[in-house]
């Protein structure tokens, strides 16, 4: 098998199955299989775990480019779309648990929450922004949008920031875990910022004063 085939026949199916593992584990918990459980408040547990899994997939998606560049693995790009779609998948599950199991389909509360509670406003904005990215993730849409596709998909930076902000703001007091997420997102976005700056200065040539670093 060449590299292309290895990705198509081996790595992609494996990553796909691994990406379903968090869902499988939570389902085991929900039904009490294999000794798993969701504790005294299964709804909150599901809500939080789906949310955190979504964040993890967002960060994994953002990790593809740096790892690809730094480790010299250009084919890694082939996994990125799937990781991004899994982020969307888990965000949708997170929102569904919130709306159906937590709010019990009380739409009045839903709209009040979105309007009045900043952390929910932020989370909901992140969910809405993910929709166009998921919709335009097909090969056909990529071709059709051309250069605009990449521009559109830079929204992922905003979405990741909204996601960790949403996590940080809903915690009552112990912000240690959300701060770890904030740190990781800062590194992942900082990497891109530094690269973009480096590119800009190198392409503008000697006309500008070199950056001090």
């Amino acid at each position: 098998m060449n590299v292309e085939q290895r990705y198509r026949r081996l790595y992609k199916p494996l990553v796909f199955l691994a990406s379903l593992a968090p869902l499988a584990w939570l389902l085991c918990g929900a039904f009490g299989w294999f000794g798993a459980g969701l504790g005294a408040d299964p709804v909150k547990k599901l809500e939080h775990e789906f949310g955190k899994t979504a964040l993890n997939f967002l960060l994994l998606t953002l990790l593809v480019t740096p790892v690809r560049n730094l480790a010299g693995l250009p084919h890694l790009l082939r996994l990125r779309r799937m990781l991004g779609l899994f982020a969307f998948f888990y965000v949708v599950l997170h929102f569904t648990v919130y709306l159906v199991l937590d709010l019990e389909l009380n739409f009045g509360t839903l709209f009040a929450d979105i309007a009045k509670r900043p952390y929910i406003t932020i989370g909901f904005a992140g969910l809405l922004l993910l929709i166009p990215l998921a919709v335009t993730s097909t090969n056909r849409m990529m071709r059709r949008l051309g250069r605009r596709w990449q521009k559109l998909h830079r929204l992922i930076y905003v979405i990741a920031a909204l996601g960790v902000w949403h996590f940080y703001w809903q915690v009552k007091r112990d912000v240690r875990e959300p701060l770890i997420y904030v740190g990781i997102v800062a590194v992942l976005l900082g990497y891109r910022w530094v690269r973009a700056r480096a590119k800009a200065t190198s392409s503008s040539g000697s006309a500008t004063v070199p950056e001090r670093t």
């Binding site: 005294a40 408040d41 709804v43 909150k44 937590d102 009380n106 509360t109 009040a112 929450d113 009045k116 509670r117 900043p118 952390y119 703001w169 809903q170």
Partner: peptide
């Protein structure tokens, strides 16, 4: 300030 107190979820 960050969540509603109008309703509650009963554990169990």
């Amino acid at each position: 300030p960050r969540w509603s107190q109008a309703t509650e979820r009963h554990i169990g």
